[in-house]
Design a protein around this nucleic acid. Structure first.
Lengths: 143, 143
DNA sequence: TAAACTTCTTGACACAGTCCAGAATTGAGC
DNA sequence: GCTCAATTCTGGACTGTGTCAAGAAGTTTA
């Protein structure tokens, strides 16, 4: 099972023409496990697996993997970047109080939210949608 | 005309229970003039009007004005915060190459884009939409 | 005009992330 | 299996954006 995953990640890296390194595999595993983790949290986890890893190596891996579409980076206002393994078209629900991030499917199916009323001549590549609110926990705990 | 605007800003500040200071007025004017400017750009402009102003005073003004709804802050991925005077429900079109920001009206009118398929129990306050793409200038210049 | 409150100034600091140069690792071809 | 070229990793310095803190200055209310 964990062997299986390792194989998959190895294949994905090769398919993108990237070298397979222990650090990248650990980063991939960590992004898969901890949803919407920050670079720091990923760094921690990778260290607990591999022992010593430099912060730079983690940033390099995160950047390379993002650029090659193996993971996705989101940068919510007021928070450091977060990384997720889900790379299809979907949006996010974020709690203004505790910062929790949840995935939500695209509101309209395929990608029609890519249709603003006026494009001003832009070539539109992506529509990013963030729903800001208060999560159930924060609603009950201190309200 | 410029006298008129000054009056308006003064009234807005008072209506929010905020003190009227030269710095805040200059910041309001600057946000109104330079669309989607960064704190740094606003700082520059305010200095050119008032002479010496501390960076902190500008940040304080921007924060206070944002909190009171007199201006709005947006924080696009990969860019420092930007400020705008338009505070109604609208979205943004941003060029991935040059970073240009344009306003677009809400795609569906009032605020129905506040309707994700599954709210996961969140109390939703706002839906933030950013259309990422390439602006006409960047399409022609280097493509 | 004075007291109470808010705001501004200056300078130090925090955080997330990047740059750099040399050392180590990896993959491809022999 | 080796060897070499290309890529990646390490460690440390550095940058940009923004906040904190304490005292000085300004503003409001009575």
């Amino acid at each position: 099972m964990s062997h299986r995953k390792h194989q998959d990640y190895t294949a994905s890296l090769k398919a993108s023409g990237l070298q397979v390194t222990a650090q990248r595999l650990a980063v991939l595993r960590s992004v898969q496990t901890q949803h919407h983790a920050t670079a720091d949290e990923i760094c921690e986890q990778v260290r607990s697996e591999l022992g010593t890893v430099s912060r730079q190596a983690v940033y390099d891996a995160l950047n390379t993997l993002s650029e090659n579409g193996l993971i996705r980076r989101i940068e919510p206002a007021g928070s450091p970047s977060r990384y997720e393994s889900r790379t299809d078209n979907h949006h996010h629900l974020i709690c203004r109080q505790c910062g929790k991030v949840l995935d939500v499917d695209c509101a309209h199916g395929e990608a029609p939210c890519m249709d603003p009323p006026d494009t001003h001549g832009f070539q539109i590549q992506e529509a990013e949608v963030i729903y800001w609110g208060i999560c159930p926990d924060c609603q009950s705990h201190h309200q």
